[in-house]
């Protein structure tokens, strides 16, 4: 393995740490939360900057509207709740008051995807990337580990415009540099490879690295690219990689419809058609279970990426 984890940490704690850092340096940063301060790791910000923190109660639609209004006075609101409530529940509020109005709101969504675990399908948001990427003006980011989530949280404060920042609940390997510069819309190549490109986002980035390791042991060279920004998509990096490898796999903790794979398929089909396989949730709701059990049952693990890579390579060679 070319990358080593410094230990398991949850991405939501990266968000909380980034938000706290922002609070210390940017007086215009304000934060809102709909009764999930502990789950979103917003305690430090809410304790240290009580004047700039707004507990909205269990009223997400109001939270989005408040955020839009706060931007009008020059504030940079970070609105935090679970992904399921941060998108589907308030889609119309985001569409009209944030995206169409082009307001500088940062929608910060934790517990995204199936790794939310035991709470089950009601809370396992698997459609949020699709919902958010369809909105004009919206930037969509899905970070892979603690360090990257912290860096992204800090970076989006300097981007003027609506942002959807997606992260999760479970502790996962923390392997990206603590001092990284996060650039919105710039893919990060993690391994050089020649036979297959693996474009992964969120928790699937580490799984993709594990898969690349397994493939290497079988004599297959995979190039792993971390697509932390789904919109705007780094088309150049994607094309450059598939021009070299000639086939690709996408991997994400999201519905196949509307997810990263669907975005990349559009680029591949338009610019440089190659065999493309997708590791994603295939048109089904999740269920209760531990995050690891669910990732295996729903085919979002390293062996699933390995199989997809072999299918892509076989199609290329036919």
């Amino acid at each position: 393995m070319k990358y080593t984890s410094t230990g398991n940490k949850d991405t939501r704690s990266g968000f909380g740490a980034g938000l706290y850092e922002l609070g210390k340096v940017n007086p215009n940063v304000v934060a809102l939360c709909a009764d999930l301060i502990g789950s979103l790791k917003m305690e430090d910000f809410s304790r240290e900057f009580p004047d700039r923190f707004f507990q909205t109660g269990i009223a997400e639609a109001n939270m989005i509207g408040l955020s839009a209004g706060l931007t009008i006075g020059g504030k940079i609101p970070f609105a935090g709740t679970f992904a399921v409530f941060a998108t589907g529940r308030v889609y119309d509020q985001i569409r009209q008051s944030v995206a169409y109005s082009n307001k500088n709101v940062k929608i910060c969504a934790s517990h995204a995807g199936i790794t939310l675990g035991e709470d089950g399908a009601t809370h396992q948001m698997l459609e949020d990337i699709g919902l958010m990427k369809m909105l004009p003006n919206m930037t969509v980011i899905n970070t892979c580990d603690y360090n990257q989530t912290k860096a992204a949280t800090i970076a989006i404060a300097n981007h003027v415009g609506p942002v959807y920042l997606r992260f999760g609940r479970p502790a996962v390997p923390n392997f990206t540099p603590a001092d990284q510069q996060f650039t919105i819309g710039k893919a990060v190549k993690l391994t050089e490879g020649t036979q297959v490109s693996v474009f992964a986002t969120g928790h699937l980035v580490w799984k993709a690295l594990e898969a690349a390791d397994m493939l290497e042991q079988q004599g297959i060279s995979a190039e792993v690219v971390n697509i932390h920004t789904i919109k705007p998509l780094d088309e150049e990096a994607i094309i450059r990689s598939i021009q070299k490898t000639g086939c690709a796999v996408t991997a994400e903790e999201h519905m196949m419809n509307g997810g990263l794979g669907d975005s990349i398929a559009q680029v591949v089909a338009r610019i440089h058609p190659v065999p493309l396989e997708m590791v994603a949730i295939n048109d089904t709701f999740g269920e209760s279970g531990t995050p690891e059990e669910l990732m295996v049952k729903y085919g979002l693990d390293a062996p699933s990426i390995v199989k997809a890579a072999k299918r892509a390579i076989a199609r290329k060679n036919n």
């Binding site: 109001n62 509207g65 408040l66 839009a68 706060l70 006075g73 509020q93 009209q96 008051s97």
Partner: peptide, 24 residues
């Protein structure tokens, strides 16, 4: 300053803008 048409959103926006005025 804000889009409206889909109903029910303006009071929240007004509250947010009012909070910003207080902060400022």
């Amino acid at each position: 300053r804000i889009a409206s048409g889909s109903l029910g959103q303006g009071l929240s926006v007004g509250c947010g803008a009012a909070l910003a005025k207080k902060l400022n």
